[in-house]
């Protein structure tokens, strides 16, 4: 437990004290919440503006979670490898699973902080949600799937991209491109049909739609992602990515050459 707590606490501190991490994970989504709340809604009917702001807030919350997992986690792993910390850890009586669990818990805690700040700014900008307590719990569940899928992708990037800058650029690239082509920055209905298929398949985008559906309804989500098959696909792929990332991380990052 002590090892998990140590790895977790270190990961949170590292994230909170690294300016690029703070910018990409917290400041950047907040900037888009502000832009989305005041610029992109200018032509919209007054009564739906708070809900458009709500949709923007959810999308940016998901984006923050995605960046934390897909870019920050691998940069943290790559940095530890580049600076010899992984070699140091391998020489110590430590289980890679405990190190991984600690990192993941640190990531979850940091992601929650980022999501809370983005939500607070969204609410301050006038975002509104039409939901009950159950819907909120559903949305939290889908956001946890976002963290799982993102952490899985992040572990894959961190395992195979050896250098810090490479890991950061790859992580940010994956996040921005997949978010753009899966409808997180635009209405689902505006996507071409091939990208709509991708948006349903890609667990981060699907979970984003699911959280939007739970908190704002089908009109804002663009489709009903709460069908059992769709939820099963999203949850299954999220868990699959996390398990795959974990196995490869413990095999390759902690492997004796």
């Amino acid at each position: 437990m002590s090892q998990i707590a140590a790895a977790s606490s270190r990961t949170i501190k590292e994230f909170l004290r690294e300016r690029p991490v703070l910018f990409w994970t917290i400041a950047w989504p907040i900037i888009w919440v502000l832009i989305g709340s005041f610029v992109f809604v200018s032509g919209a009917p007054k009564e739906i503006v708070p809900y458009l702001r709500g949709a923007t807030t959810i999308a940016m919350m998901v984006f923050a979670l995605m960046i934390a997992g897909v870019a920050n986690l691998p940069s943290n792993i790559a940095s530890d490898r580049e600076h010899g910390l992984l070699a140091k850890l391998m020489s110590m009586p430590i289980s890679p699973w405990k190190d991984f669990t600690g990192r993941l818990l640190g990531l979850v805690a940091f992601s929650c902080i980022a999501a809370a700040l983005v939500t607070a700014v969204g609410l301050a900008c006038g975002a509104r949600f039409s939901s009950t307590g159950i819907n909120v719990l559903q949305a939290v569940g889908f956001l946890l799937l976002v963290i799982c899928a993102s952490a899985g992708i992040g572990l894959l990037v961190g395992t195979f991209i050896k250098h810090v800058h490479g890991a950061v650029m790859t992580g940010v690239g994956i996040s921005v491109i997949t978010a753009a082509v899966s409808g997180m920055f635009m209405p689902y209905s505006a996507l071409p049909s091939s990208l709509q298929q991708f948006a349903r398949l890609y667990p981060v985008a699907s979970a984003n739609s699911s959280a939007t559906y739970a908190l704002l309804g089908e009109e804002m989500a663009g489709y009903n992602p709460l069908a059992a098959s769709q939820i099963g696909l999203t949850a299954g792929l999220s868990v699959f990515l996390l398990v795959l990332g974990t196995i490869l991380y413990s095999r390759f990052c902690w492997r004796m050459e």
Partner: peptide, 21 residues
């Protein structure tokens, strides 16, 4: 390599290793 974390204090770096041990 310099493996200690530059973002943590000296005490935090040592506490990290102490907790791991």
């Amino acid at each position: 390599e310099n493996f200690s974390s530059p973002n943590l204090t000296g005490r935090e770096n040592l506490m990290y290793v102490a907790n791991l041990l």
